[in-house]
Write a protein that binds this DNA or RNA. Structure first.
Lengths: 256, 256
DNA sequence: CGTACCATTGAACCGAATCAAACGGGGTGG
DNA sequence: CCACCCCGTTTGATTCGGTTCAATGGTACG
């Protein structure tokens, strides 16, 4: 059952037998033959702290990453959709740094860590893997700033726009999408409560930015959402930039 | 002027001519001869987005990392003390992902990225560098959870305990330390306002947990602070764990 | 058809932000 | 040396966004 639609976005598409890619660079022979498994909603692909044994490109479905801090505080740190790869750990970590939980019954490939390492010898492939990791790190930083200094409406608008962008990258044309995650998950990701998320969604809908019913959601006014995200009203306030004393992209001397 | 006290904690001590280390593994010859520079308070070691050219082990002084999001939101993401290395970018990034600003006049070494790469060929050294990077990533995650789901007092207690731990690792014996960063910086890191930070410090002092005057600070009751951090009263409330639906270290099946 | 879970909505409360002074220390210039 | 100013900090009064507590409604599933 090779070549699911998500293969076309997969990190491994150039080295994977499952994916039929037109552009097949001469150097890269398709040496990867991943196995497939399905994970039931609520089950874990892997758990934080366990040794890294494999990575999991999603074929169909979605997942959340959950981090549990040393003191037992748990928080969702991200969502993954089909085409994303779960379990990629930066810095050659030997243990998973988060847990990955399926949001719905999910089909994925299983690429052993040995196979991954083997293919990492190929420079272009290695670069693309590292680029994905860097992108993930950037994502977490954006989330940090969002939670740390944006208001609830902005954070939620950010998430909706992000989900929409991802959905469109996967072929979604109109702005209608089905949220795989619960309000609680969204709230956890954004550092809010589920009530606030629910209220905010209703408010967005009442202002004509979106329409929601349960987990069916449609973006009606992307620009409006972007305006909320950027905090150009008409939601709440707080001005960007100009915070900590000396930190601006000023033109003081700097070594690099 | 080699071998500052901070050398004994430096990541590069085993390969650096400046550092006099007793245990000198046979394989690693001391081939690193870093140059030294001083950076004035408020100046940048390097700026986010610039190509990575060098890393900067701190000899004397301190710095803050500042991240600026695509939309212009700026936030402090961490503090570095003497012995720490600034500019280590994970995933072979070609540009700095944050800016590093000196909190005071700071002396540091300059290790070119080429020199770093050369030494990364040495497996034990490489592992220690990767370990530092992983530690930094973990730190940012803890910060994310702190900002996302802990209350102000807990966050501040966390920071104070962390600063104290770092200070003690550097030889500090009693709990007295001098904060190099402003209230604004602390507030930015913790996702609060400077007024809240100031008030909280006063409150901690009035309860006998610490004593503060301006930037002179002394920890009086570490256990008390730890209790505040862990949220065991006697400050505010909110119970840990048990958040997002299915995510607990339960014993559901998982692949790894 | 009943049960369980997720989502919505309302009312009251509270923590932290905001607005607004006053204070303190360190530096500069008279 | 002292007066003055600047900037970071402290403290107070007030507002407000988001949480908490609570009840109802909707949907899926056994």
């Amino acid at each position: 059952m090779p070549d699911s639609p998500s293969c076309s976005l997969c990190l491994f598409r150039h080295v994977c037998r499952d994916a039929s890619t037109a552009d097949l660079s001469p150097g890269a022979q398709k040496s990867l033959q991943p196995t497939h498994v399905t994970v039931a909603a609520g089950d874990a692909f892997y758990r934080q702290g366990r040794p890294v044994a494999a990575v999991f490109p999603l074929r169909e479905g979605s997942a959340k990453q959950v981090y549990e801090s040393p003191l037992g505080w748990r928080q969702v740190t991200g969502f993954s959709l089909s085409g994303d790869v779960l379990g990629l750990e930066p810095n050659e970590a030997s243990a998973y740094s988060v847990s990955a939980i399926a949001l719905q019954d999910t089909m994925c490939c299983v690429v052993s860590i040995e196979a991954l390492r083997t293919h990492m010898a190929d420079p272009p492939f290695r670069d693309s893997v590292l680029a994905v990791m860097r992108h993930q790190a950037e994502r977490e930083r954006i989330l940090l700033v969002a939670i740390g200094s944006m208001r609830a409406a902005q954070r939620l608008a950010m998430l909706l726009l992000d989900l929409d962008t991802e959905h469109r990258r996967r072929g979604g044309t109109d702005g209608s999408l089905t949220l795989a995650m619960s309000r609680t998950d969204i709230a956890s990701l954004l550092g809010l409560t589920l009530e606030t998320v629910s209220r905010l969604l209703s408010r967005f809908a009442s202002v004509g930015l979106i329409s929601v019913r349960q987990r069916r959601l449609r973006l009606i006014d992307r620009d409006g959402l972007a305006a909320v995200y950027a905090d150009l009203e008409p939601m709440p306030r707080q001005a960007p930039a100009a915070m900590a004393a000396h930190a601006g992209p000023g033109d003081e001397p700097h070594l690099f």
